[in-house]
Design a protein around this nucleic acid. Structure first.
Lengths: 636, 636
DNA sequence: ATCGACACGTGAAAC
DNA sequence: TGTTTCACGTGTCGA
């Protein structure tokens, strides 16, 4: 599971612990099924910083995976050192962490943004509760770098960038490609788009980090993880986002407004690096000085590299920055995958820079061959596509006089096709996420595994049903006639509502839960009386809703209800309507017709709104138990 | 569901019935979900051939879908004629036939070969068991042509070809695309590749068929349905299949061995037309004469059209044949979809004909614009791909001197890419075949549905396991008091439909047909299910009715139903609505609002009348057995 | 060099 | 009419 320690990472990150004061570094990679972060390796500080008074609770750890014998050893085997509390903590770490949306890992991977957390170390009584432990999760290309320290360290963008620049491409044995983000996207976590506010007050790190050390080692490069997510999010939403380049001197003189800009502002007074979708141009002003220059040039360069077709920000010659960026990951794939967005971006944006600028910029010597190759490919793409390069576009329209509508149409097609592809991919990865046994990661295998899994499930269901039937037949033979739960409708996730829709409700007790959720309101009764009808919507899964509507029975109320459901795009799968004394209880199971996501609250509100226009008035619930069981007893 | 009768087909096939002695022709189209053959139209012979001693069992048909009133009318409304037994049989036909592998339709569609069946007419005692009825199913582009006659008629390839030539492109409103074959392939039936031995001993038809009539009306064109299947099968297996062209004079002088040949041999002594994957060249020799010439030229031409890039068989000038072929279907899509195979084919085969032949052939005026458009597109594709046209390839190598390896690599890539796509598609369609509930046919929806289905199955398994556990736990305990039969929902037409109303496809043992997508319901059940609307009204007491309405689920059907009930003056007291696979069962308990006396039959008729005005069509519930009041005693 | 896998843009066609 | 879906060929990357 956990691979052998990768020396490259180990060596690269070794300097973080100890020298920079961090106590440990753990690097996780995304598992093959994209569901776990797997422990790859770690660096331990190797010195006893807090003592080891817990070291001999080794019973717990004697069989831990990283302990070869019964003696407690640090998982970081590369440096032989005394066992510290850190070692113990490292050895306590799971080899695999599920990537759910609630966890830090999932958040980090989804957002593409580092997570800098402080939390009290409650496990160690020696440390006060006010003493915070800092943990940092930094997404990299193939996984996550986790840093930990038992002291409070403020956020440190430079450190993050350093780590990123160091740990991007070290896990080549695992091909993450672009599926990571898409599959993670299936966790349905909203991407954090403009919350990536990095506190750069202490830009060069916490107290333990030497500014010199860091600045010498790493030019600040914007991690493309974030860029990637940003681009991804934008292309996901199909919403343009604005990017603005500070038009100060160092970044070049192209101060014109570019339609979509990445706002990255370096303010010396706050040193805040803000990445957002703001629409106004840099409100903080751009100071001069090495730091900001570094920033802006890096932004320019990063942008040039990431959005190579942007061509509006001239190179400032910081090749080292470029190298740094390039070294920070297997960026080619990402760039390639970003090209959809980039081209989309480029098409809509108005060309304002003559073609020479572009050519000069793109053909200017880069620092590395990789970058050149990438840019070359990008250029080739452009030339072939004939749709994303502004100069080409100008040429086209000027020379050939191609009607713009045609281009428009083509570009629309292009965008739509990207969208379609993305949707397909998302679905594919969602499917993959559902299938537990995954042999390979390629599309055909995903489908094949899904097929096998479905067959397996079907067989399983069949077997279970048979078994159940046998059991019940046995029951039936035992005591004369019982069909205990056969009519229970498993499609309904009843526990939330407590209704067995298929149940005829002979047993009066079974009906109590049916009426409880709408009837046991207590204090809320009064304000709910104001509502024209009681609507309760439960979302069973992505597409299945259960609605319970309790109202007065009026002529046409059913028609109106069903019309409302229909207009809501809800397909009624099952309905149970019961009337009693002028009141009516409707229980619907409905499915979203067009597979659009809709929230329960949304449905409820819309339904209320729609039905409130009619004359269906309030159902009085004054006396709790309105629907007596005898009313719904449907048998004779 | 079944569309209005298409006049084109009607007219085209009219001559088959009567003149050629067939008693009826029914044309079916493949349903949107590729799972049913839907009744499109028919031609009835229009004369009483067997008398109509069954005609007055009209109770069964009084509300049959194709009868507008209570009088029995033939579904073939285009020719007013006396009601015959054929009319009755036609009216008895289901509007939709499931395409499972066991049925004739599925076989025919899968194999692409016509099916000529003889079987005894057991339903009519007037006909002896030895008297055979002949039914022929002929696959066409969009469906199946069914011919029927109550006498024994031997196989007749010419008739089949005639029908095919007549019925290819008449259902343009239904977009078959290419999914037909692929989705059918997912039924996992091995395609009959070389068993298509057609007995052409009586080539020009059965005793009733006039040879002159047939030969004058139709140039014999090989139905591309078969071509399609053949090509598909070949590309499916990734195994080349051989095609040999009889190198007699009429087909042109290109007698050289082409690597893959379609062997179609016309032997005068046996008049056997064999379509097979044989590897030896035509062993029977090729006779001269108009018929065989027609065949061979048609083969050449068909091949030229289908495999337009073959270019080895010169045109023989039978443009009429080409037109016939072109008229026989929406071939463009198929050709396009076949192009993968064609190009693959073309690449491996050795070019033996100079480029001029190709250009002359492909640029020679075709019969119709459609064909021209197709060939143009094909040429364009070739030019763009630069890999499939031999002349282009030669040109490339001669002129530009492009290294062959590069081209080779590209073309290999091309082939591999096609293969990959095909694999993906196959998997996708296999997956689709496993998922019972399919909303749309596009890829994204397939995946989405599969995702939903997997979730559902997982939940189902979970529920079943829980339930099983509970049951067993209950078993452990001495179960004290049980409710004997009330859990059997008395409103269900269990034995008739095999569907539990309260169930949505999970849980109880009755759900097996529900959860298995394999359409393993009996024909009779399906027929009943697919009938447009079944209405059953039971009068419980003076004011209380129970209605059971079983119909297809259509948008707005609930609204319409409730409106109808409302307008009938019926107050719904209880409703239970359950959907299943596009069908819906509504059980209402309704009370007469204004206390008027109304009889059950009256309610039923009015309801049928009202709902028949909408698109929910009427059907009679064959046996009007009424739910006994004991089932639905609704008193409290 | 070769092969498999993938994303991309594109034209066509169905909706 | 525009929108959506699809298959196709191509370039690229990594094994």
């Amino acid at each position: 599971m956990a691979k052998a320690v990768v020396p490259g990472v180990q060596e690269r990150l070794r300097s973080i612990v100890g020298i920079k004061g961090w106590e440990y570094v753990v690097y996780w990679k995304i598992s093959d099924d994209q569901r776990f972060a797997e422990w790859v390796g770690c660096c331990c500080v190797g010195t006893s910083s807090q003592g080891l008074h817990h070291a001999l609770e080794s019973d717990v750890f004697s069989s831990a995976p990283y302990f070869e014998g019964s003696t407690v050893r640090c998982p970081d085997l590369y440096v032989s050192h005394a066992v510290t509390k850190t070692c113990l903590m490292l050895s306590e770490m799971p080899t695999s962490v599920p990537l759910d949306q609630t966890g830090s890992f999932g958040q980090v991977l989804l957002s593409g943004q580092p997570l800098w957390t402080h939390y009290p170390v409650s496990t160690d009584p020696g440390l006060g509760q006010d003493k915070l432990q800092t943990k940092v999760y930094i997404p990299t290309q193939n996984g996550i770098i986790e840093l930990g320290i038992s002291s409070h360290v403020v956020e440190n963008a430079a450190l993050i960038q350093y780590v990123k620049s160091r740990c991007g491409d070290t896990w080549q044995e695992f091909n993450v490609r672009d599926v990571t983000r898409t599959s993670l996207q299936s966790f349905h976590i909203p991407l954090r788009n403009d919350k990536g506010l990095l506190d750069t007050n202490d830009l060069l790190g916490g107290s333990n980090v030497s500014p010199l050390d860091l600045s010498s080692e790493s030019a600040l490069s914007l991690g493309y993880g974030r860029d990637n997510m940003q681009g991804y999010q934008s292309s996901l939403d199909q919403q343009p986002f604005k990017m603005f380049y500070p038009s100060h001197g160092a970044a070049g003189g192209t101060g014109e407004l570019v339609e979509r800009n990445l706002q990255l502002n370096t303010a010396s007074e706050g040193n805040q690096v803000q990445w957002c979708s703001s629409t106004d141009s840099h409100p903080w002003g751009v100071p001069d000085g090495p730091l900001s220059e570094q920033f802006s040039s890096q932004v320019a360069h990063t942008h040039l590299s990431l959005f190579g077709q942007e061509k509006r920000v001239p190179l400032t010659g910081h090749h080292s920055v470029q190298e740094q960026y390039e070294g920070s990951g297997d960026s080619s794939r990402l760039e390639k995958n970003l090209s959809a967005f980039v081209q989309n971006f480029h098409e809509i944006s108005v060309p304002v820079v003559p073609a020479q600028t572009f050519h000069a910029a793109s053909e200017s010597p880069r620092g590395s061959g990789l970058s050149k190759e990438n840019s070359d490919r990008d250029i080739k793409h452009e030339t072939r596509a004939e749709s994303s390069d502004c100069s080409e576009q100008i040429d086209d329209e000027d020379e050939k006089g191609v009607p713009r509508s045609g281009r428009r149409h083509l570009s629309k097609n292009l965008v739509a096709e990207r969208k379609r592809r993305k949707k397909l991919n998302d679905r594919l990865y969602s499917l993959r996420a559902l299938v537990p046994k995954i042999t390979k990661m390629d599309r055909a295998s995903i489908l094949g595994d899904a097929i096998e899994y479905v067959k397996e499930l079907q067989q399983q269901v069949k077997d279970l049903q048979d078994e159940l039937l046998e059991t019940k037949e046995d029951d039936m033979q035992a005591n004369v006639a019982t069909i205990p739960e056969e009519n229970m409708n498993p499609l309904l996730l009843d526990e939330e509502i407590g209704v067995h829709v298929g149940d005829d409700g002979r047993g009066s007790s079974k009906l109590d839960p049916l009426s409880t959720p709408s009837l046991d309101m207590g204090e809320r009764q009064i304000e709910e009386l104001r509502q024209p009808m009681q609507v309760e919507v439960s979302k069973m899964d992505a597409h299945l809703f259960t609605l319970r509507i309790f109202c007065e029975k009026r002529p046409g109320v059913f028609v109106k209800l069903l019309q409302a459901l229909d207009m809501l795009g809800l397909d009624v799968l099952h309905a149970n309507i019961t009337t009693f004394r002028g009141l009516v209880l409707n229980v619907f199971n409905a499915e979203i017709r067009d597979k659009e996501l809709m929230q329960a609250e949304q449905v409820k509100e819309t339904l209320l709104e729609m039905t409130s226009q009619s004359d269906c008035r309030i159902a009085n619930l004054g006396n709790g138990h309105v629907v007596g069981p005898q009313l719904i007893s449907f048998d004779s």
